[in-house]
Amino acid sequence: MKSNKFVRASIIIIILAFNIGCDQVSKSIARKDLPDNKVIGFLANHVTLEKTENTGAFLSMGDNLGGPVKYVLLMGLPLLALLGALVYIIIKTDITKNTLLGIIMVIGGGVGNLYDRVLHGSVTDFMHIDFIIFQTGVFNVADMSIMAGMGIILVDSYLKRREEKRHLVVEE
């Protein structure tokens, strides 16, 4: 029994480390190799690389806040949420593997961006997608991890509820 918990915790840590590592390597490359104030386009400029430093949160929200309010909203609350999520996935062993993976991805992306905020004072973003009807802000690998993780959690939740409804109909 204890060995299963150890294996599970080890797998969680390995996936988290890989997730955070991929994010940090990509940001390091962007900081080092992408020139300032230059956009590099691919696929007829529908996908571009453009290094920016985001001192706010998602889409630079909170960028204009100052002092302790900005610190609490952009560092304190995310740190508490990430720690809470980590404790949750370590303690709660009956969640589905897909939901577990989704939460790990959200934590990994959050840690990657929080690490940037602490170490660099901002988060390095460098990718942008613009396919006319689908357009993003400038983002990074951590943001992709957070969004993919949330997507996995939502799809898994939907499928689980659908399965539960199907069992209720069969039992009636």
Rank of each mutant, 00 (worst) to 15 (best):
N64T: 07
S3Q: 14
V87N: 06
G121W: 10
L101E: 07
D94C: 06
G109A: 07
L82K: 00
G110H: 01
G112P: 03
G109I: 01
N113W: 05
L74G: 02
S122C: 14
D130W: 09
M150Q: 08
D156I: 02
L73V: 05
P35L: 11
A81L: 12
V39G: 09
I90A: 03
Y158W: 11
H120F: 15
F139D: 05
A57H: 01
F126R: 09
R162D: 10
G21W: 08
S157Q: 13
K51N: 04
R117G: 02
M150W: 02
E53M: 13
I29A: 12
N140P: 04
I153N: 03
I20M: 00
I104D: 08
V72E: 03
F6R: 11
M105L: 15
N4T: 10
V47W: 03
R117N: 00
R8D: 09
I11M: 10
L79W: 00
M61P: 06
M1K: 14
I40K: 12
K70E: 04
G110Y: 04
K165N: 15
E53D: 13
T52Y: 12
L43H: 12
L114C: 09
I15S: 02
V155P: 03
I12E: 03
L159G: 05
I153H: 04
H46L: 11
G110S: 00
R162F: 14
K27P: 04
M147A: 09
T55K: 12
A9R: 08
L74K: 06
I12H: 02
I29K: 11
K97N: 10
L154Q: 00
R117D: 04
K92I: 05
K27D: 06
S60I: 03
Y115H: 13
S145Q: 11
G151N: 02
G151Q: 00
T55G: 13
D63T: 09
S145A: 08
L154Y: 06
I152Q: 03
G67Y: 00
M147W: 03
R117Q: 02
I90L: 03
I132Q: 13
K27L: 09
L79C: 05
F6G: 06
K32R: 12
G149F: 01
D116G: 04
H128R: 15
D125W: 02
V39Q: 14
K165Q: 15
V118Y: 07
D156S: 05
M144W: 07
T96F: 11
G110R: 03
S157G: 15
L159T: 05
M150G: 13
H167Q: 11
M1R: 15
D125Y: 07
L73F: 06
D23P: 04
I89F: 01
F58S: 15
I146T: 01
I90T: 05
T93P: 01
N19I: 06
V106W: 00
